[in-house]
Amino acid sequence: MSNDNRRHVTQNDDGSWRVAKPDAQRASGNFDTQKDAIAASDRIVRNAGGGETVIHGRDGKIRDSKTIAPGNDPFPPRDKK
């Protein structure tokens, strides 16, 4: 998957949350809550044709990631039978 369709949600020094491409100098957006930043990241990635939202915790470590359609999920859920 290309980094062009990946956005990271990280916390700023002031406690707000930012959405940015990897190695970007400017944020795509800044938000008061992590929840708002994740929703914005999902929307940006979806509008770019799908990809991945990578969510960082307050400590800066990756705590979760999710594939946004129509991106390729490397571990899709199995069909329940």
Rank of each mutant, 00 (worst) to 15 (best):
Q11E: 11
S41K: 12
G15H: 07
R18S: 14
H56V: 05
G71R: 00
H8Y: 15
K81T: 13
D79S: 13
G49R: 12
I62T: 14
I38Q: 04
F75R: 10
N72F: 11
P74C: 10
R6K: 11
N12R: 10
S2K: 04
K35G: 10
A48M: 12
G57Q: 08
R78G: 14
P76H: 04
V9Q: 01
E52C: 00
G15F: 08
D73H: 05
N5W: 02
D73T: 08
D42P: 02
D32E: 15
P74S: 11
S65Q: 13
F31L: 05
N30G: 05
M1G: 08
D73K: 02
A37L: 08
V45G: 03
Q34V: 04
D59F: 02
A48C: 06
D73L: 05
G71I: 02
N12M: 06
R58F: 05
I68P: 00
R46M: 02
D23F: 13
D36W: 07
D42W: 06
N3Q: 08
V45L: 03
G51T: 00
D4E: 10
I62V: 15
I62M: 14
N47P: 01
D36T: 07
N47V: 00
M1F: 09
K21S: 12
I68M: 03
A20H: 06
N72R: 09
I55T: 15
P70C: 06
V19Y: 00
T33I: 12
R58L: 12
